[in-house]
Amino acid sequence: MYKAQRFLVLDGADDVLRTYPIGLGFAPEGHKQFEGDGRTPEGSYVIDRRNPDSLFHLSIGISYPNAADIAYAQAQGKSPGGDIFIHGGPRKGIDPMNVRDWTAGCIAVTDRQIEEIYAMVRDGTPIDIYA
């Protein structure tokens, strides 16, 4: 995923499978460091869970925070936060692609796109998030 360009790329074994435009946290610049900072993490993580009953239209969990994220936040006397997901729009409310960077640190796509991603991506899949 490329934060500055606002797109998510799903790579297959031999080629790019799909590319999706994305929305990010309400403070999109920089790596997520603390709970409530509104940033989307940067770095290497894995898809570690999925939630078909999410408050959003499907959601796929990202393994943030990792050990380094936790250590940094604790050294500052803060919580690193968590519950970072790729998800569709809220059950009620805004279209995630009509309002840019509205999440609390998650990665937003349209409802139709999260349905495709949810079907293609398995738990344990690596995800690299670049600035």
Rank of each mutant, 00 (worst) to 15 (best):
Q33E: 14
K78D: 01
N51T: 07
I127L: 06
M97P: 10
P21Y: 05
G23L: 07
V46K: 13
H87I: 07
A75T: 13
P28K: 11
T110N: 08
R122S: 12
I94G: 12
S63W: 01
A131C: 01
D111N: 15
Y72H: 15
L24I: 07
Y118T: 04
A71C: 12
N98Y: 07
F7E: 13
R91K: 15
E42S: 06
E42G: 06
L10T: 02
F85M: 05
A108K: 06
T40R: 04
S54D: 06
F34R: 14
A108N: 11
V121P: 02
R39F: 00
N66K: 08
G77T: 02
P96Y: 09
E29A: 12
P41T: 05
E42P: 04
N66Q: 02
G25Y: 03
K32M: 09
I107Q: 01
V109T: 04
P28A: 10
I62E: 03
G43H: 00
Q33D: 06
I117Q: 02
G30A: 10
S63A: 06
V121S: 05
G25I: 02
K3D: 00
F85N: 05
I84Q: 05
T125H: 05
K32W: 10
P90F: 13
T19N: 03
G82V: 04
R18E: 06
L55D: 14
A67P: 10
M97N: 14
Y118I: 02
G89Y: 00
I22M: 09
V46M: 13
K78N: 07
R6A: 05
G23F: 01
P80L: 09
Y130G: 00
A27S: 15
S54P: 06
M1A: 12
Y130I: 02
G61I: 04
P65F: 04
E42N: 01
D128H: 15
V16S: 09
E115Q: 15
G77P: 00
C106G: 13
D83G: 03
D48L: 05
N66W: 01
Q74T: 14
E42T: 02
I22E: 05
A75F: 02
G43T: 01
M97G: 07
K3T: 00
E35I: 07
W102H: 11
I114V: 12
P52V: 11
Y118W: 01
D15C: 10
T40I: 00
I84R: 00
G93E: 10
A4G: 09
V16Q: 15
P28L: 12
I114W: 00
R49H: 15
H57L: 01
A73W: 06
H31C: 05
A73I: 11
N98H: 14
R122A: 12
I127F: 04
M120Q: 09
Q113P: 06
